[in-house]
């Protein structure tokens, strides 16, 4: 209730910037999403290929994911600052588009089949453009929503638990 006096920032135990924290949270979301997704067998080789497209704002946050076991295999991360050849991302199971550049995002989405690859974006029109998961900022927290139109039409399966959490 009356926490007016408490509009405070607490002395924190970590020396990281706000953007650093945002991308650590986003990296953690990627890891969590992978616990709820089942990729079809023919795309699977014991590894889950997570592709990060655009400027790498994650810093070292992705180091924690590299090689980590998920139900679908170990996470392997690849970075692409831009995509010239669609072949480069053909083996991605997860594709994360960094930033809010609409044109760039559209180019990336045009090059792939969003029914085969779990696409994650971080600006508000990403779902409207055909992406699967959109991370957004609300109330000083990072939340996500899921593209309802794609649910049930993808090659990969997403557990209902995740769909329910994604507003």
């Amino acid at each position: 209730m009356r926490q007016i006096l408490f509009l405070v920032l607490v002395f924190m135990t970590s020396t990281v910037s706000a953007e650093g924290v945002v991308y650590q949270i986003k990296a953690s979301y990627i890891y969590n999403f992978l616990q709820f997704v089942q990729f079809s067998n023919n795309t699977l080789s014991g590894e889950v290929n997570v592709c990060i497209v655009g400027e790498n704002k994650f810093g070292h946050a992705l180091d924690a994911l590299e090689g980590t076991q998920t139900p679908q295999g170990k996470i392997a991360i690849s970075m692409f600052d831009k995509i010239t050849q669609p072949m480069q991302i053909a083996s991605c199971q997860v594709l994360y588009v960094v930033g809010s550049d609409i044109q760039f995002s559209q180019q990336v989405l045009d090059k792939i089949n969003t029914e085969n690859i779990l696409t994650i974006g971080e600006f508000s029109d990403f779902i409207a453009m055909g992406g699967y998961i959109e991370l957004y900022l609300e109330d000083d927290s990072i939340h996500f929503r899921v593209n309802r139109q794609l649910v049930g039409h993808t090659q990969f399966k997403v557990a209902a638990q995740l769909l329910m959490l994604g507003v």
Partner: peptide, 16 residues
């Protein structure tokens, strides 16, 4: 998770 409380911003001093 609250981003501002997790990050140590420039004005991270308690302002109360």
């Amino acid at each position: 998770l609250k981003i501002t409380s997790l990050s140590k911003k420039k004005q991270a001093l308690n302002k109360a």
